Amino acid sequence: MRYLINSDKLNILTELDSNRQQELANKYNVTQQAISKIKKRKECYQSVIKSENVARRSRCPSSNLYTLLDSLVFEFIQLLEERNLPVDDKLIKAKALSVAQSLGLNSFVASANWFMKFKKRNDVRRLKQHGESRCVDLEVVENWFLKLPDIVKDFEPDCIYNADESSFYWKALPTSSYLTRGSDQHGIKQSKLRVSVMFCCNRFGGKEKIMIIGFRARPHCFKKFNYDLSTIGVNYKYNSSSYMTSALFNEWLVEWDNRLIEEKKKILLFVDNCPAHKLTADLKNITLIKLPPNTTSHCQPLDCGIIANVKNLYRSKIIQRLAPSVENDINLLDSLKELQLIDGIEMLQGCWFNVKPDTIVNCYTKAGFPLN
């Protein structure tokens, strides 16, 4: 992607009346989002560019120089944003001082007050960066979306499945909270106790049993279910790493394939390119399709909001469970110690089946799957 200078932006503003945004994006080798931003800030850019031209003739009033300063610092932030480099307040202030010196604004101070007003003027906010979507090749995604209708055309929506694994930190609390004014609440050290969980659902919103992959064959807390979690609709496996392996994956596929043979049902199963998803079994009624590499944040339904929804429901559930104990003056850490793996699995199972079918259907649509 190309970095636009002010003359480019002026040309784009001139051409917007007679050209579509996507056409201009292709012409200038930028994203359509960048063109949209320029259109929204039309008056600002025209004013700044005019001020910049005046400044070059050394007859620029001080107010215009400060407008130009704002613009150049804002463009600097956009440039680093496009190149995926995180930006903090110190870097912005240092850039502002450098630009101010080049403009002859020797009295300028990048104070906390200036920075606060700069953020407000330019709608700059500090946000947490999530996921891996910036690493995705959008051209690959678009090509996949074009191929997808042909891949699924012979299957009904309830025969199109997606499966994916995720880490399950069953004692981890939410990292954000509503606080009263003046509160000085601090967080606690999050628990690192982890197992893996695999989710699987179809295009129509139907769900399969979750698979939990733990470290031990018979955790003591499973005793109340006679060490058989199938009685609560959970498939439990284990290995030394508590991660999915090719052996576990193929064992699960064979078991499911045998059930499908009895039901006389054939399905299409989409999975990502994780090495553990290497197919070694001979399947009769399951056709396994691998998603394009490094595109799961766009192409995998479970990564488009389904797993996030389950985890949000779980975080809410764990707080509801702990709140009465804390309200009765029991220390939060002591309450967490009482929470066992089986408690977390039971809550997770409930949260999984509380995910609305509409949520699943919408996430499939977001991932490019057509509605047959």
Rank of each mutant, 00 (worst) to 15 (best):
residue 90 K to L: 12
residue 241 S to P: 07
residue 335 S to N: 01
residue 219 P to N: 08
residue 147 K to V: 00
residue 319 I to R: 15
residue 31 T to W: 00
residue 162 N to V: 11
residue 91 L to R: 10
residue 240 S to R: 14
residue 68 L to F: 01
residue 44 C to N: 05
residue 365 T to W: 02
residue 107 S to Q: 09
residue 179 L to M: 10
residue 276 A to R: 05
residue 124 V to Y: 02
residue 288 L to K: 08
residue 203 R to A: 13
residue 103 L to E: 10
residue 53 N to W: 02
residue 89 D to F: 03
residue 53 N to G: 13
residue 264 K to V: 06
residue 12 I to E: 03
residue 285 N to C: 15
residue 172 A to Y: 00
residue 109 V to P: 06
residue 156 E to G: 08
residue 106 N to C: 09
residue 173 L to V: 06
residue 315 R to E: 04
residue 162 N to C: 09
residue 361 V to A: 07
residue 298 H to D: 01
residue 18 S to K: 10
residue 340 Q to W: 03
residue 270 F to P: 07
residue 332 L to V: 15
residue 27 K to S: 09
residue 142 E to Q: 15
residue 158 D to K: 03
residue 314 Y to F: 15
residue 260 L to I: 11
residue 350 G to M: 01
residue 227 Y to S: 09
residue 141 V to C: 03
residue 368 G to K: 08
residue 145 F to C: 05
residue 292 P to E: 10
residue 353 F to K: 03
residue 25 A to V: 04
residue 231 T to I: 07
residue 17 D to C: 05
residue 280 T to C: 00
residue 154 D to P: 08
residue 240 S to L: 10
residue 218 R to V: 09
residue 5 I to V: 14
residue 334 D to Y: 06
residue 207 K to A: 05
residue 220 H to E: 15
residue 143 N to P: 01
residue 301 P to C: 10
residue 5 I to R: 13
residue 362 N to H: 11
residue 30 V to E: 08
residue 166 S to K: 03
residue 90 K to S: 07
residue 191 S to D: 08
residue 104 G to P: 07
residue 31 T to S: 15
residue 371 L to R: 07
residue 195 V to Y: 08
residue 276 A to I: 13
residue 36 S to I: 01
residue 318 I to T: 06
residue 256 W to S: 15
residue 131 G to E: 02
residue 334 D to C: 04
residue 138 L to P: 04
residue 321 R to A: 15
residue 146 L to D: 13
residue 137 D to F: 10
residue 213 I to A: 10
residue 309 N to Y: 12
residue 14 T to W: 07
residue 266 K to V: 05
residue 332 L to A: 08
residue 44 C to T: 12
residue 332 L to N: 04
residue 190 Q to K: 14
residue 152 V to L: 05
residue 228 D to P: 07
residue 129 Q to I: 09
residue 368 G to D: 11
residue 218 R to W: 02
residue 81 E to A: 00
residue 15 E to K: 15
residue 7 S to N: 14
residue 185 Q to N: 02
residue 367 A to P: 07
residue 335 S to M: 03
residue 64 N to A: 07
residue 277 H to L: 01
residue 115 F to S: 05
residue 326 V to S: 05
residue 366 K to N: 03
residue 256 W to T: 14
residue 208 E to D: 10
residue 115 F to E: 02
residue 209 K to Q: 12
residue 337 K to S: 09
residue 33 Q to Y: 04
residue 189 K to L: 13
residue 67 T to P: 02
residue 11 N to F: 00
residue 159 C to K: 14
residue 304 C to Y: 01
residue 100 A to R: 02
residue 314 Y to H: 06
residue 308 A to T: 12
residue 41 R to T: 11
residue 129 Q to P: 04
residue 212 I to P: 09
residue 52 E to Y: 15
residue 55 A to D: 11
residue 106 N to I: 11
residue 229 L to R: 02
residue 297 S to M: 00
residue 183 S to F: 01
residue 323 A to C: 07
residue 315 R to D: 09
residue 38 I to R: 02
residue 131 G to H: 00
residue 76 F to W: 12
residue 270 F to V: 11
residue 217 A to T: 12
residue 97 L to T: 15
residue 357 P to T: 13
residue 119 K to C: 10
residue 331 N to V: 08
residue 76 F to N: 03
residue 103 L to G: 07
residue 297 S to Y: 08
residue 29 N to E: 06
residue 102 S to M: 14
residue 106 N to M: 13
residue 281 A to G: 10
residue 372 N to I: 13
residue 221 C to W: 11
residue 172 A to M: 13
residue 40 K to N: 01
